[in-house]
Each structure stands twice: as structure tokens, then as C-alpha cells.
């Protein structure tokens, strides 16, 4: 790549420079601009675009919270606890690594040996008020049991809502329906992300 090519930022022939007049400096110039803007009816141009799109039912507004945009798998929102696909049992083996690595001391885990002499998680809570969503817990988990989900709304009436293990655990019906989302790993990209990849104006 030669230096000329490198410096050429016109990545497309469609690009053109917007014609912007210099800012008026004299009082007369300023007055003229006000008059021009007032009577040129630029407002109607914008209104027309809205009207046109409305009539065409080509509306891009996302009706949040009824509609939500898909969120990237890298996004670190409220944690999820996963189940094993085959048996439906909880993946968490109670190793406590997440508790240890947690830098804001918000994970609390307790285990016991159950009747079948298996280690069982008896208590698991994440104090989301303290959590800084750093993702260390998900990263350290050897069983891919704790991952970050996409639920990013953090408002509730009671703080107890933020720490319930059962809320984080994949419900059985969801698992049976095959709807448990697997963690795709760090560095995973958003679905169909490649389609929206465009050249940036700085192509090099």
C-alpha cells in the first residue's frame, strides 16, 4: 500500500462533502441567516420525511420495553446459572472459585454433602447491589455454570430480588424446550454481526 492510497480516505464514490457556509460574522450576515432560515421552511422537509416513512410503515423505532434489541453474547448483565443438558441438574459443583475471585465480595456460596454423599450447593447468592459485573466469576467457572446473561434491567422493589438463586437458574421447562443459551465463550461476537461490518472511513 502506497502512502497515497493510505491517505486516501474516500472509501466510496458516494461520499461527498456537505456544503456548509462559513458562519456569518457581521450583524447583517447573522440577520440574513435568520431571515433565510425562517422562510426557507426547512422544518417541512423533516416533517415530510417523517410523514413519508409513517405512511410506508417503515418505522425503525424500537418499542422498548416491549421490544428489545438482541444483546451481544459478550454483554455482562445479570448472571445466569446453567443446567446440564442431559440430566437437568445444576452445573455448579460448589468449588467456590467465583466467591474467591469476586473483587467486590458479593458472591456468597455454601455447600453441604447431601444424602447421596454428593456435594450440593445449599446456598448461592449474588448481591447485585455490590456487583460491578466484571465477569471474573464467569471467567473462572470451570463448569460454565455461572455466566452473564442479557437481562440488563436492574430495578426492583426489593433488594431480595437481586440475590435469588432460583431466579438465576435456568427453569426446567426452558431447558426441556432447549431454550437454555449456552455461553459462547469470551470474544464471541453478536449473531449476524458480520453482516453489519462495514468499512470504516479510516480504511487501512
Amino acid at each position: 500500500m502506497s502512502i497515497e492510497q493510505f491517505k486516501n480516505r474516500n472509501i466510496s464514490d458516494d461520499y461527498y462533502l456537505v456544503d456548509i457556509d462559513d458562519y456569518p460574522t457581521t450583524n447583517l450576515g447573522k440577520f440574513t441567516r435568520v431571515i433565510k432560515r425562517t422562510f426557507k421552511a426547512e422544518l417541512l422537509v423533516g416533517l415530510w420525511v417523517v410523514m413519508r416513512e409513517m405512511l410506508k410503515f417503515n418505522i425503525h423505532t424500537v418499542q422498548y420495553p416491549k421490544e428489545k434489541l438482541p444483546i451481544g453474547p459478550r454483554y455482562r448483565a445479570v448472571h445466569e446459572m446453567k443446567r446440564l443438558w442431559e440430566s437437568g441438574t445444576e452445573r455448579c459443583i460448589g468449588c467456590g472459585l467465583c466467591e474467591k475471585i469476586c473483587i467486590s465480595d458479593c458472591i456468597r456460596i455454601d455447600t453441604r454433602i447431601d444424602e447421596e454423599s454428593r456435594k450440593e450447593v445449599s446456598e448461592y447468592s449474588i448481591n447485585l447491589g455490590r456487583c460491578i459485573f466484571c465477569g471474573y466469576c464467569a471467567e473462572v467457572c470451570p463448569e460454565l455454570a455461572i455466566t452473564h446473561g442479557g437481562r440488563y434491567e436492574n430495578a426492583s422493589e426489593q433488594r431480595a430480588h437481586f440475590i435469588m438463586y432460583d431466579d438465576m437458574l435456568t427453569p426446567m421447562d426452558m431447558l426441556k424446550a432447549g431454550a437454555q443459551k449456552e455461553f459462547e465463550g469470551f470474544g464471541a461476537i453478536t449473531p449476524h454481526e458480520d453482516e453489519s461490518v462495514k468499512k470504516t472511513p479510516l480504511s487501512y
Binding site: G94, C95, E99, K100, D110, T111
Partner: peptide, 8 residues
């Protein structure tokens, strides 16, 4: 409060 999982 409990210390951690390896120190019950």
C-alpha cells in the same frame, strides 16, 4: 459472616 467456602 462466613469467611469463604474453604473456611466454613
Amino acid at each position: 459472616k462466613h469467611t469463604s467456602i474453604d473456611l466454613a
